[in-house]
């Protein structure tokens, strides 16, 4: 049980509750938003903050021991990998022709892609430059 007499437990509980709340909002966003791109937004925002708060709750509850440092390490990894995977998925989706939802107002990336396609070979981005 949670001991609300202890400030530490209370703070940890509030962080955990907020974390679960943001994770839930992220999931609702995943269901409600239209296209891939907007859904990735819900996935990379509410869910990362929700998870950060859960992990911070763990740090507060258990202190900076084995558990706390592991939680901090997880925060670091999520902060690095979540945006990277969102970028990879969004880019791959766009390149394989997944359209933006109806009601989207602008797509500079498609315009740029068309400009590249119109140019002679070699004029565009450096394909395969990254490993």
């Amino acid at each position: 049980m949670i001991d609300f007499g202890s400030p530490r437990e209370t703070v940890a509980f509030v962080l955990l509750a907020l974390g679960v709340g943001f994770d839930l909002l992220g999931c609702i966003g995943l269901v409600r938003l239209p296209d891939v791109y907007n859904r990735l937004q819900a996935g990379t925002k509410c869910v990362t903050l929700g998870t950060f708060l859960l992990l911070l709750g763990v740090v507060v509850r258990f202190g900076l021991g084995g558990m706390g440092w592991k939680a901090l390490l997880c925060i670091w990894f999520i902060a690095m990998t979540s945006p990277t995977s969102a970028h990879a998925i969004a880019r791959a989706a766009h390149r394989s022709g997944v359209p933006l939802a109806a009601g989207s107002v602008l797509d500079r990336y498609r315009e740029a892609g068309e400009a590249r396609a119109a140019e002679p070979a070699g004029g565009g981005r450096e394909e395969g430059a990254a490993p």
């Binding site: 938003l33 509410c46 009601g103």
Partner: peptide, 22 residues
């Protein structure tokens, strides 16, 4: 940003105007 996105997600009319900018 999370408060902003959360507000849009729970709003009944889903007020979004998405697009890709440069």
């Amino acid at each position: 940003s999370n408060l902003d996105v959360a507000y849009r997600i729970v709003h009944p009319r889903l007020p979004i105007r998405p697009g890709i900018t440069r």
